[in-house]
Design a protein around this nucleic acid. Structure first.
Lengths: 103, 103
DNA sequence: ATAAACTAGTTTGTAACACAAACCGATAAA
DNA sequence: TTTATCGGTTTGTGTTACAAACTAGTTTAT
């Protein structure tokens, strides 16, 4: 049986934050890509806050950011990357295993 | 189906931290109470760091702290409270349900 | 007996981080 | 030509995590 801390240490630190976890689970469940304003409403974040969290998630390669123009206006959309999906899955797996104590 | 963010918002914020999560899963699995030095070794934390995290967990009523003397030396032990157990269980439940998307 | 070193923590100063206010560049309306 | 609005980003501030320094006492060495 591995030590609890070793399992916890495999959790991506970016996911240990309420806002970013919210962004990720929204994206991981989404069928299409999700835009900035949707996330603002869904997660009840301010624009600045959302912007900087998404930057970090992008740097960590957990999400992919796409910038386009729609009706001449900028539009930023977000998708979960494969790594993002993996990290979320791992997150859940580690917590489960650590609590069930069977690893 | 409830919104992902509503589920995430029920997670106790004290648990969204690697060190504190480590402390809690160590305690929640423990048969007997766990002492300060055990946690230092198990979680690879500095003394100051452990001390302050435990203070917060105690304030949040997630753990119970007991101070005694053994061989004239101070000895501090920690146990998980019922609330602590509940919060950990809820944590896992919320993440699971949000990922399985069935709530 | 005194000093030095060790034990078991706590307090405090700092560096990193989350957050919202202020800002920016562009479009649309008055 | 202002004035407002949209879709964000940057910046300043308050919180937080962290380790270094400190406290209080015990044991060992001199």
């Amino acid at each position: 049986m591995k030590k609890a801390i070793d399992l916890i240490n495999t959790i991506n630190p970016l996911l240990l934050d309420r806002a970013r976890l919210g962004i990720m689970v929204t994206l991981v469940n989404a069928k299409e890509s999700i835009d900035f304003n949707f996330l603002i409403d869904a997660l009840d974040l301010t624009k600045g806050n959302l912007s900087s969290h998404c930057q970090k998630l992008e740097e960590g390669q957990l999400i992919k950011v796409t910038k386009t123009f729609v009706d001449k206006k900028p539009k930023t959309t977000y998708e979960c990357t494969n790594l993002g999906r993996q990290e979320i899955k791992n997150y859940l797996k580690q917590i489960e295993s650590v609590l069930k104590n069977n690893n």
